[in-house]
Amino acid sequence: MAQTVTAGSVSELPPGKIHKIEHGEQVIALVNIDGQFFAVDGVCGHAGGPLCRGEVVAQEKVISCPWHGWEYDLQSGECLMDPSLSQKVFAVQVQDDTVKIEVE
């Protein structure tokens, strides 16, 4: 059953940074690219690295892992190095000034 997690206000989640959102045992990497929000599983599928400490290529909507540089498409979660290691993506909604993530 899906739940909604409040990540914060838009002003608390500025563009160009990766925001670490924790929900129970789950870690989510939340990215704001020019006001559009993306959320993916925050643990790299390759070697378990912390995607929340990685880098974002805003023009390509890609997040990379700091450990080995593996890249993931923020829209689909697809791993650009090995599609079998795709990351889970989460729906993100902005209601008024509040950013919310749907988790299972």
Rank of each mutant, 00 (worst) to 15 (best):
A2C: 01
A2H: 13
T4D: 07
T4S: 13
V5Y: 06
T6E: 12
G8E: 07
G8M: 03
V10E: 14
V10Q: 11
S11F: 05
S11H: 09
S11L: 10
S11E: 14
L13F: 10
P14Q: 08
P14I: 07
P15G: 14
P15F: 11
G16S: 07
K17L: 15
K17E: 12
K17F: 11
I18K: 02
I18M: 03
H19T: 10
K20A: 12
E22M: 07
G24N: 14
E25V: 08
E25I: 01
Q26Y: 04
V27K: 13
A29V: 06
L30A: 10
N32I: 03
I33T: 05
I33D: 08
I33G: 08
D34L: 08
G35R: 10
G35E: 05
Q36D: 13
Q36H: 09
Q36N: 06
F37L: 04
F37Q: 07
F38H: 07
F38C: 02
F38T: 00
A39S: 06
V40L: 07
V40M: 01
G42E: 10
G42Y: 11
V43T: 14
C44P: 02
G45A: 05
G45D: 03
H46A: 05
H46T: 02
A47G: 09
A47W: 00
G49I: 01
P50F: 01
P50A: 07
P50Y: 00
R53M: 03
R53F: 05
G54P: 00
G54E: 00
V56H: 04
V56A: 01
V56T: 04
A58Y: 03
A58L: 04
Q59R: 13
E60R: 11
K61I: 02
K61P: 04
K61V: 02
V62A: 08
V62D: 04
I63L: 01
I63M: 04
S64N: 09
C65L: 03
C65E: 04
C65I: 02
P66D: 01
P66Q: 00
W67C: 04
H68S: 01
G69Y: 08
Y72F: 15
D73S: 12
D73I: 04
L74N: 04
Q75Y: 01
Q75H: 07
S76L: 03
S76N: 02
S76K: 06
G77P: 10
E78F: 00
L80I: 03
L80K: 15
L80G: 10
M81W: 13
D82H: 13
D82N: 15
D82G: 09
S84C: 13
L85F: 15
Q87Y: 07
V89Y: 06
F90I: 02
A91S: 13
A91Y: 03
A91L: 06
A91C: 04
Q93E: 15
D96G: 07
D96T: 10
T98F: 02
T98N: 10
T98P: 09
V99G: 12
V99E: 13
K100N: 15
K100M: 15
E102M: 12
E102Y: 04
V103M: 05
E104P: 15
